[in-house]
Design a protein around this nucleic acid. Structure first.
Length: 238
DNA sequence: CGCCCGATGCTCT
DNA sequence: GAGCATCGGGCGG
């Protein structure tokens, strides 16, 4: 069942917690892929100094002010991250989807991630900037001494690393600013489904401060599945 | 493993 | 012009 608008028309922290275990699906001309949501963060708008909407409406964050159940996609450090807008229209709160456990379309996701990674390496090499350079007509780390890549593509693209982190997730699912504002309740292009067979007990849900923010670090608005290997950032040892 | 650092481009001041 | 809800590579332990 595709999650309906009412699901998202609730306090963002509640929506965040309830999104754990749900299935995120992406369908494009390249095919369908998706997986289980294992890590999210709530952003609480005007009362949350870490939220993009804290200082009011701008062209970038306009989707956060729109109706619940739509996507808010933004760029950070030349990468994309996707949120689901929550609470009634005009209340600019949202839930950042930080990681999924890939379950379907792994090949498609790996292809997109490897293409992006190789393109980034190639651009760095071509521009003579960054870590990579063209050495013997091959793109290698500039300071590579033995001329063998230390971090191989298969290593980076093992299932665990396909969608672990908000920007990797968007890369694997081909989500970018074109999906900003998209209605996620239609069950087309991008949507979230209930998985009736999958249940989480309260003990399996962990919460922590949000990752990578400087303000409001005392707020525990990051939620993740405690024993999942597909969660980004720090997890407690099992 | 953990920590540090640079890439890179968009957004808002 | 500064800041950023990130990522991947290098290096030290």
């Amino acid at each position: 069942m595709v999650l309906p608008r009412e699901f998202f028309d609730r306090p963002s922290a509640k929506v965040a917690k309830d999104l754990l275990g749900k299935l995120l699906w992406r369908d494009t001309s390249e095919g369908k892929c998706g997986g289980r949501i294992v890590e999210v963060e709530a952003y609480e708008g005007a009362k949350d100094s870490a939220a993009h909407s804290y200082r009011g409406l701008t062209p970038r964050n306009a989707s956060m002010f729109g109706p619940p159940g739509h996507a808010y996609v933004y760029a950070i450090h030349s990468r994309w991250c996707v949120n689901v807008v929550t609470e009634p229209e005009g209340v600019p709160t949202a839930v950042l989807i930080r990681a999924i456990e890939p379950l379907s379309g792994l090949e498609l996701m790996a292809r997109r991630r490897s293409e992006s990674l190789l393109a980034r390496r190639a651009r760095q090499a071509a521009e003579g900037s960054g870590v990579f350079a063209v050495i013997d007509q091959t793109i290698l780390p500039r300071r590579q001494r033995e001329r063998l890549p230390t971090t191989s593509l298969p290593m980076l693209l093992r299932p665990r690393d396909l969608c672990r982190g908000p920007a990797r997730l968007c890369e694997a699912l081909a989500i970018n600013r074109q999906q900003d504002g998209l209605d996620l309740t239609l069950g087309r292009e991008l949507w979230i489904e209930e998985d009736a067979a999958f249940k989480l007990t309260p003990r399996q849900i962990a919460r922590s401060p949000r990752i990578g923010i400087s303000t409001a670090q005392e707020r525990l608005l990051r939620f993740y599945i405690r024993n999942s290997q597909f969660v980004s950032g720090k997890r407690e040892r099992i």
